[in-house]
């Protein structure tokens, strides 16, 4: 039977499929995720967005000349 879980802000960790296809060298896939540095350029990106009833592509560099607050969050409907 599937197990119940309580909805929370924290998504339950994704269980990685165990050992099944453990052929690829594990070390190769570990990407190093660097942290941003203050005083350095923000990495540019283009991303789809929902904005005022429309779907648009947003490019960060279009916001040069403006102050930008870029906010990430765990997911829609995550309560807080």
């Amino acid at each position: 039977m599937p197990e119940d879980f309580k909805p929370g802000c924290q998504r339950p960790p994704v269980k990685k499929p165990a050992a099944a296809g453990e052929s690829a060298p594990a070390a190769a896939k570990e990407e190093v995720q660097g942290m941003i540095k203050v005083g350095k350029p923000a990495p540019d990106f283009t991303a789809p967005a929902y904005w005022k009833g429309k779907f648009v592509n947003i490019n960060l560099s279009e916001y040069k000349g403006k102050w930008v607050l870029l906010c990430f969050y765990p997911g829609d409907f995550t309560f807080v």
Partner: peptide
């Protein structure tokens, strides 16, 4: 992230 008009964090 606060990004200024020059694109600096």
């Amino acid at each position: 992230f606060i990004i200024d008009p020059d694109g600096i964090v």
